[in-house]
Simulated scan of single mutants.
Amino acid sequence: MSETIRNVQPVTVHLGNAGSGELVPSRYAVRIGDVDVVLISDGILPLPTSTMSTNVSQWDRNEWFDSRFLQRDMFDWALNIALVRSGERLILIDSGVGDGFEYFSRAGRSVMRLESAGIDLAAITDIVITHMHMDHVGGLNVDGVKARLRPDVRIHVAAAEVEFWKNPDFSQTVMPEAVPPALRKAAAKFVELYSKNLVLFDQTVEVAAGVSARVTGGHTPGHCVVDVASKGEKLTFVGDAIFEVGFDNPAWQNGFEHEPEVAVDVRIALLNEAAETGALLAAAHVAFPSIGHVAKNGGSFRFVPVQWDY
């Protein structure tokens, strides 16, 4: 592939209201039985491609990125959150990266996009945190957000996750130098702000009818996924268990995984589960809207995005 194609830069187009910054609404809804699920884009995180495959050669990594017409050095990670309505319960899954991170200036859109969808933060009854990395708790740390949430909002997070962030281990991660201190700071601030709202669980918890969270570990020791099941239909929001490269190369380890070998096992198990059941899958870091099916493809997997219904 030519260097010209590989280094192509994104083009920003401004249409509609001046200064809106929104080309299209960055949300996508599906219905799972009686439960409504909306995927919302928090924006984009530009990170080194090396973090996507820390246990393979640069040649193998370049080959995959070349095949996707992507740059070899930096990769735009999608960052998605979800909103789920089950009966009278309105559940937010993760909160995006928030503000205060200059190198993530293209993300932190969750609160604004919830508002543009007509969602009052005070209407949210429950929040599920898949894990306490800053791009998942940061939106809740933004000044003024806590005051807009209901005082009794329940924030479901694995007990193992809260315990891990008391003294986090980064020995197996491969992150940009500035990231670990920011992760520590964001996790500590989240616990400080919301300690009275935390609903800790060990392995699984039912958040609402048809909505449950289960601990997988791997990415972090207390990482969890969220299952939405109703009337024989199912969608699993897998958080950071599966990345864009993970379908073709499930054994590739990610630099943000605190337990990389466990994370590989978790990833393969979730991909096999989705392929065998036909359930929908959505993820924090798969290209928006990230909803699709998983098919087996020899020794790997193939992501089959939903046909965009608009």
Rank of each mutant, 00 (worst) to 15 (best):
M1L: 12
E3W: 14
T4R: 15
I5W: 12
N7P: 07
T12Q: 12
L15M: 10
V24R: 06
P25Y: 10
P25R: 04
S26P: 09
R27I: 10
Y28K: 07
Y28Q: 09
G33V: 13
V37Q: 03
D42E: 09
I44V: 14
L47S: 00
S50Y: 02
T51M: 06
T51R: 03
M52A: 08
V56P: 04
Q58G: 01
W59I: 11
N62K: 08
W64L: 05
D66Y: 00
Q71I: 14
Q71S: 15
D73N: 15
F75L: 06
L79V: 15
L79Q: 12
L83S: 00
S86N: 01
R89N: 10
R89Q: 06
R89I: 14
I91G: 06
I93K: 01
I93Q: 02
G100E: 10
F101V: 15
F104H: 03
V111D: 14
M112Q: 15
R113Y: 14
E115C: 13
A117S: 15
I119V: 14
L121W: 13
A123E: 10
I124T: 08
D126Q: 05
I129K: 07
I129S: 07
T130Q: 03
H131R: 11
H133D: 03
H133G: 05
M134D: 15
V137G: 00
V137D: 02
L140Q: 02
G144R: 07
V153Y: 06
R154Y: 10
E161I: 10
V162H: 08
E163K: 12
F164T: 06
F164Q: 00
W165V: 06
P168D: 13
F170M: 11
S171P: 09
A178P: 01
P181R: 05
A182Y: 02
L183I: 14
K185C: 07
A186S: 14
K189L: 14
F190M: 13
F190K: 05
L193K: 03
K196N: 13
L200Y: 04
Q203I: 11
E206F: 05
A208I: 09
R214N: 08
T220K: 04
G222W: 11
D227Y: 07
V228E: 01
A229D: 09
S230V: 12
F237H: 00
G239T: 04
G239D: 03
I242G: 01
G255F: 05
F256D: 01
F256K: 04
H258K: 04
E259Y: 10
V262K: 05
R267Q: 09
R267N: 08
E276K: 00
A283S: 02
A287M: 04
A287S: 08
H293Q: 09
V294A: 04
V294N: 02
V294H: 02
N297L: 11
F301H: 03
P305V: 07
Y310V: 15
